[in-house]
Amino acid sequence: MTANAVFIHHPGSARYQFNESHPFDPQRITLSLDLLHKVGALSPGDLIVPETAADDIIALIHRQDYIDAVRQLSKDEPPAEWLQQADRYGLRTEDTPFFPGMHNAAAAIAGGSVLAADLVMSGQAQHAYHMAGGLHHAFPGHGSGFCIYNDAAIAIEQIRHRYGARVLYIDTDVHHGDGVQWSFYTDPDICTYSIHETGKYLFPGTGFVYERGNEHGLGATVNVPVEPYTEDDSWLESFEHSITKVAAAFKPDIIVSQHGCDAHAFDPLSHIHCSMRIYQAMPAIIHKLAHQFTNGRWVAVGGGGYDIWRVVPRAWALVWLEMTDHPIASRLALPGVNEALPASWVDRWHSLSPDPLPSYWLDDTSGWMAIPRRSEIEERNRHTVKLAVQEM
């Protein structure tokens, strides 16, 4: 681990599990950490354990009545009067059902993202990575989309409240970062940027180009909704062109990035057809922007990702490899270069995976099915990007 990057992890985040059949599986964190251990990029002693977020920290974004509801519904046998309130707080849906220990697990995740923000803003670290974070769909008064407490929004509000800094939030999850966007929709000092599959076809059904902010925050919200079956070249063209313009126009003091990795072709919950190439390239672009515009201040969190065996470990490990200038990241950035995953990692997990595990960091896409209407999809995405940044 380099001196300028810190890795935040609370063991309590492993308890953030709705039920055994739910797609949000904390096993993905275990797999990702083990991959980093196997390549020698992280050791158990490198992990910084945060405190669980107290109510006053969670209340930077969430209403106290919602926090109370989460606490009560976290009990092994929730009181009857609170069971009757579960629907009101979005905690009895198929996506986001309440579960025992929910508050402590979600507060542990919130605490991790807040510590990452504090370490960077106080100058104790230049970069910080909190892999378990990125629960970007939670709202002040209700849970949504697998998310109980919005750790990214809480960390951003901590930055504004304690340090008075301008924050550029970059969301690369395939689902629109709605909870973060709406939390800061009128704030001119928080720019929320999200690239995602268009809400015409995908949860949460928001994140359109015309969502630009309101009141003093008008223009500080940027959305790049791409077409279904977008591939690597178009996704990266859309991302790099738009986020470079946004960063140059907004001039942030710190970047907070969310690295959901569910735009991969293997992910079961979206319709985008990208490969691991975008998960090598996007952290590199963000890293460059951080050094160009924020004196290197960069906080990264995880997010979505539901092919937990073939996609998430590689994608999330690549964020840390880029953040620490690891030689693997440098080599993978070269055109045409790929590199084998450690055999010890593949050997450990292959018998548990429902699909054959990959052997390399990047995908061999030569045998992938060709996407019809490729040129049409690319042109539509270029038009969307033009609209998204036309006033920058």
Rank of each mutant, 00 (worst) to 15 (best):
N214S: 13
E240C: 01
D363G: 13
V311R: 03
G101I: 13
L47H: 01
I154K: 06
T230H: 00
G101R: 05
R314T: 01
A263C: 15
S242L: 02
G40P: 13
I371Q: 12
H22P: 08
E94M: 12
T221M: 06
A340M: 10
I371E: 05
P356I: 12
S144D: 13
G145F: 06
G296E: 07
R314Y: 07
D233G: 07
E215H: 08
G217N: 07
L33C: 00
T294D: 05
E391C: 05
L168T: 05
A116L: 07
D363P: 06
I154E: 02
A110I: 11
A155I: 05
S113F: 06
I29W: 01
S351L: 10
H142W: 14
P342K: 14
V120T: 05
A5S: 13
S242M: 04
S122W: 02
L83T: 04
I286V: 14
P358F: 13
L91D: 06
H22G: 12
P100F: 09
L341T: 06
V6R: 01
I255Y: 04
T198F: 02
I61G: 04
A41V: 10
P313G: 14
T244Y: 02
E322N: 15
Y163M: 12
Q258K: 05
D307C: 12
A315K: 01
I377H: 06
S238M: 01
L135A: 09
F208I: 08
I278A: 04
V337N: 09
L269Y: 08
A248I: 00
W298E: 03
E211T: 10
G134R: 09
S257G: 13
V319I: 15
R348E: 15
T324E: 02
D267Q: 08
L321P: 02
E339V: 07
V346K: 15
F146I: 09
A263P: 04
F139K: 15
Q126S: 13
A86W: 08
I278C: 06
I195P: 02
E231W: 01
A132S: 15
I170K: 02
W298A: 05
A107R: 00
E77K: 15
T30V: 13
Q64G: 00
A153R: 06
L321F: 04
H241V: 13
A80I: 08
Q390P: 00
D68R: 13
I255G: 05
K288L: 07
W320G: 03
A343R: 12
P50E: 09
R382P: 03
P354M: 01
S43P: 00
H350Y: 05
T96C: 14
L119I: 06
W309F: 11
G304W: 02
A110T: 15
L332Y: 10
